[in-house]
């Protein structure tokens, strides 16, 4: 790589800082800080046990997977508010089909909920030129209604042991399958996000849609793809929930939306688009998970937990979003 020509003489006697902290570095520091804090204060309370750490990995898998998808949507300048409902509908469809048919039908059918919702979100957003915020808000209503209607509000038990092993309840060696899924999706998402032309065009689209269009990028297709990816990760989370809970219920995923967005943003993804990090999203999700876990183990009342969590999230987001002032 050429350095161009260095136009300016470096200041004398000044340390020349070669590069700024990589974006999202804050989340790594924050995660380590929070972890160490709990490790010290809770050393006798089971926080550091392998089992408890595996708990955190299990508990955060759903949010992590969805945060990866949400990182794509946010990076393209879009947002998907329907992920919680996609989780629920995927879970209901999968559980009903597991009961009436088998996993070979149920899993693809469940994932197709995400594909179809994502495509619809994307097409409506780009064709009607309505912000994805509104389209996905409305779509959430439709999808949520369908998942309540499908069994008339009744939860559906899942008895297929193979299914529950693969999707969320089993262990491979010492590792929960939930963790394996998280890592697998993480790697794929990271490669696509960082190393492909799609990833670069995604960031350009989110950073300045007009400039991206002038650069010959099919921004509509990129935005649709980002929403499909987001929805599909929500579907995958739905499959995992079913596996973990051995049942499906229309309320699944209902409260995950804000946690997912917070995880992505803490991880260094800009809500305005054009910037983000998949690794950061994982860390963001783990920060939230460790926080939940540690605060409960510390014996805080629920009110205190809520307050502490709120404060820490604000601090984390403020740190990770803070940009160097322009100059």
């Amino acid at each position: 790589m050429s350095d161009g020509q260095s136009a300016v003489v470096p200041g004398r006697g000044r340390l020349r800082i070669p590069r700024r902290l990589p974006s999202g570095a804050v989340v790594y520091i924050g995660f380590v800080g929070i972890f160490l804090f709990f490790a010290v204060t809770l050393r006798d309370n089971g926080f550091l046990t392998i089992d408890n750490q595996l708990n955190v990995l299990r508990q955060t898998a759903f949010v992590s997977v969805m945060a990866f998808g949400t990182t794509f949507a946010l990076s393209a300048g879009e947002i998907d508010l329907s992920i919680g409902q996609v989780v629920a509908l995927t879970a209901m469809v999968t559980a009903v089909l597991l009961r009436d048919m088998n996993a070979l039908v149920a899993v693809p059918a469940g994932l197709s909920v995400g594909v179809i919702t994502g495509l619809t979100n994307g097409l409506l957003t780009t064709k009607l030129r309505v912000p994805s915020f509104l389209i996905t808000l409305g779509m959430g209503g439709i999808i949520g209604g369908l998942s309540r209607w499908i069994t008339n509000l009744q939860p559906v038990p899942v008895l297929d042991d193979n299914y529950t092993f693969v999707f969320g309840s089993g262990n491979i060696g010492p590792f929960p399958t939930l963790f394996v899924w998280t890592i697998a999706v993480l790697l794929v998402a990271h490669l696509v996000y960082r190393k492909t032309t799609f990833g670069r065009q995604l960031l350009a689209t989110g950073g300045n849609r007009i400039a991206a269009r002038y650069s010959g990028i099919n921004t509509a297709r990129i935005r649709i793809a980002s929403l499909v990816i987001c929805s599909v990760t929500a579907s995958l989370a739905g499959l995992l929930y079913v596996g973990r809970l051995h049942s499906a219920r229309y309320t699944l995923g209902e409260t995950d939306l804000l946690t997912v967005i917070a995880a992505a943003v803490i991880g260094g993804t800009s809500m305005a688009g054009g910037r983000g990090s998949i690794m950061g999203a994982l860390l963001g999700s783990l920060v939230m998970g460790v926080l939940n876990n540690g605060l409960i183990l510390m014996g805080f009342s629920i009110t205190e937990q809520d307050i502490a969590r709120g404060v820490i999230i604000i601090v984390a987001v403020a740190l990770s979003l803070r940009e160097a002032p322009e100059g």
Partner: peptide, 12 residues
């Protein structure tokens, strides 16, 4: 939320 319930039980 059943999922939060699962997490809460594990954690405690």
């Amino acid at each position: 939320d059943p999922a939060k319930e699962a997490a809460a039980v594990e954690t405690v």
